[in-house]
């Protein structure tokens, strides 16, 4: 199993699109930082326009914490989309190149082969989110400095700099669980569709649908509470004034269970299907 995981890591690191996709994530981060540097004060001005009638502002809200929060918001769509493309590619490329048949001629069990891909997908996703967090904290604080974080979630919430760091760090951690879920789904979709373009389109569709359904009220408490599309905004819970820790634990636990279900489903399908 270890050899299989090592081989999968090697393959992932050898494929060019891994680096293109990673570069894309960090390019998005760079664009956010550059645009904020030149236009960020406009966002703050619009946000606080009504308050200007009643208050003077002392201090700077365009700071590292706000920038990290803006980068964090790429977890809604940009980051999971790129991750889904890379992760699904580790299986679709095997189908495309025909290497999967070569591997299957070896004394390798099918489920172990796919499980190693799932494990590598999880490790890779966690590393990407970790580096996204690390670079966003490093760059944002070094360019924009520290200061209070302002977030609009039903109400205008202000957090002190140390409080903001704490919440942003946990938000990245919670977001990582959500990203792992999308990565696993994309690999399961690759098992079903085999072909890269089809898998990418369906993966993107899955992501868009998940985002759209997040706001839909299904009219049933348990569906609204347990359906996986309702769990992918858990990392935003960290920015309400009172943190709902039990909600965060349960949602992440449910996402982990859903991820395991998708892995089990992928393994079942892969074992059942013929290679080719």
């Amino acid at each position: 199993m270890r050899a299989l995981i090592a081989a999968e890591i090697y393959k992932l690191l050898r494929q060019g699109k891994t680096y293109f996709a990673l570069a894309a994530i960090f390019l998005i981060e760079g664009v956010i930082l550059i645009s904020a540097y030149y236009q960020g004060s406009n966002i703050i001005d619009i946000l606080l326009d009504n308050l200007k009638q009643s208050f003077y502002f002392e201090g700077n809200l365009l700071n590292g914490n706000l920038l990290i929060y803006l980068i964090l918001n790429t977890l809604w769509f940009h980051v999971p989309l790129i991750l889904m493309i890379i992760i699904s590619g580790i299986l679709t490329s095997e189908y495309k190149d025909g290497t999967i048949q070569t591997v299957m001629l070896q004394p390798v069990s099918k489920w172990k082969f796919l499980l190693s891909k799932y494990i590598v997908a999880i490790i890779f996703t966690l590393i990407v989110v970790f580096f996204l967090a690390l670079t966003s904290f490093g760059l944002s604080y070094s360019i924009f400095g520290f200061g209070d974080l302002i977030v609009y979630l039903d109400t205008l919430n202000f957090f002190s700099s140390s409080e903001a760091f704490y919440r942003l760090s946990w938000s990245f951690a919670s977001g990582a669980v959500s990203m792992v879920f999308f990565s696993i789904v994309s690999l399961t979709l690759a098992v079903i569709f085999k072909e890269a373009t089809k898998t990418w389109i369906i993966a993107a569709f899955f992501l868009i649908l998940s985002n759209l359904l997040l706001k839909v009220d299904f009219g049933n408490y348990w569906v609204n509470r347990l359906f996986f599309v309702k769990l992918n905004d858990t990392w935003q819970y960290l920015f309400y004034t009172e943190i709902d820790w039990s909600g965060i634990y349960w949602n992440n636990l449910l996402l982990i269970i859903y991820s395991m279900i998708f892995i089990a489903f992928g393994l079942y399908l892969f074992n059942k299907k013929d290679i080719g």
Partner: peptide, 19 residues
């Protein structure tokens, strides 16, 4: 004590969690 109008947030700034 003062009167204050509620903030009108531009849609593109709203987080998806915003009701």
């Amino acid at each position: 004590s003062f009167e204050i109008t509620r903030i009108k947030i531009p849609l593109n700034y709203m987080g998806k969690g915003t009701e």
